[in-house]
């Protein structure tokens, strides 16, 4: 059986909020290392990969592999019943029909319990190799969100160009064009504001801003975001979570003009 307790329901609420507009029905794959999720959007252009390691829970118990097929809009309805600071316990039997979510208030005696019916989801799973990216940009997540929002007003797509000079987000639209260039920046007082560019070779790729803006819904989960690029491979946008856990988004590049 599965029994996993999170100190704060907020983590799962934010994760589900960040991915529910991209993917609808997902398997939460549970085993003794934690809870993982991989799902592609309907158009097979973007992929969500989440890993919540067992260390993120206390306690965590999962005796055998269990796939919890859950509709994210149903999960959202139930998670709305939890306060951010509630303790969240997820329970399921070995061959479950339902998953049980229990919310306990940390400062009162309220205890809420909900069951969500599970679905059989036959999900395609992609093998994503460990990749050495040509460029990795680490920047404040709100800054990335703002750039995507600002450029979305002008265009549907953005080119991201990394050189030793910095990273340039540029777009071209009907009303005109725009570009934001960031250089490496180190702020000792506010390390959250740091911008780091690791570059082994220059990269230039074009992506849909609609998808990037969607990924930015995860901005509340981490103060900084890693944007990993290599020519002619999908972009990786990674939000690091506590206990070596993560929420990653992959996006296929646009090719041809």
């Amino acid at each position: 059986m599965l029994e996993a307790r999170l100190e704060q329901a907020e983590l799962l609420k934010k994760v589900v909020d960040a991915i529910k507009d991209l993917v609808q029905d997902c398997n939460f794959d549970c085993n003794d290392s934690g809870v993982a999720l991989q799902a592609m959007d309907n158009s097979h252009v973007a992929l969500v990969s989440m890993m919540l390691k067992s260390e993120a829970f206390s306690p965590f118990r999962c005796d055998r592999n269990i796939a919890l097929g859950i509709n994210l809009s149903s999960l959202t309805k139930v998670l709305r019943c939890a306060q951010n600071n509630d303790i969240l316990t997820v329970k399921a039997e070995d061959a479950p029909d339902v998953v049980n979510l229990m919310f306990e208030s940390s400062d009162s005696d309220r205890l809420s319990e909900y069951d969500i019916k599970l679905m059989d989801i036959d999900q395609e799973h992609l093998g994503i190799p460990e990749t050495e990216y040509a460029a990795t940009v680490t920047m404040p997540s709100p800054e990335f969100q703002r750039i995507c929002r600002d450029l979305s007003a002008l265009s549907e797509s953005v080119s991201i160009e990394c050189t030793k000079e910095g990273v340039k987000f540029a777009c071209n639209g009907d009303i005109g064009s725009g570009a934001v260039t960031l250089r490496s920046h180190s702020d000792v007082e506010n390390p959250d504001q740091n911008i780091k560019i690791d570059l082994t070779e220059p990269v230039a790729l074009t992506f849909s801003l609609k998808y990037l803006s969607n990924f930015c819904k995860a901005s509340g989960l981490a103060k900084s975001v890693n944007i990993c690029l290599s020519n002619e491979v999908p972009l990786l946008v990674e939000y690091g979570l506590a206990a070596n856990s993560y929420l990653r988004f992959y996006l296929a590049p646009k090719i041809g003009d």
Binding site: V45, P234, A252, P253
Partner: peptide, 14 residues
């Protein structure tokens, strides 16, 4: 207009 690629062109199904 650039064409958005399918992810399965880059990664194989497992």
């Amino acid at each position: 207009t650039p064409i958005q690629n399918d992810l399965s062109e880059f990664y194989t199904m497992v």
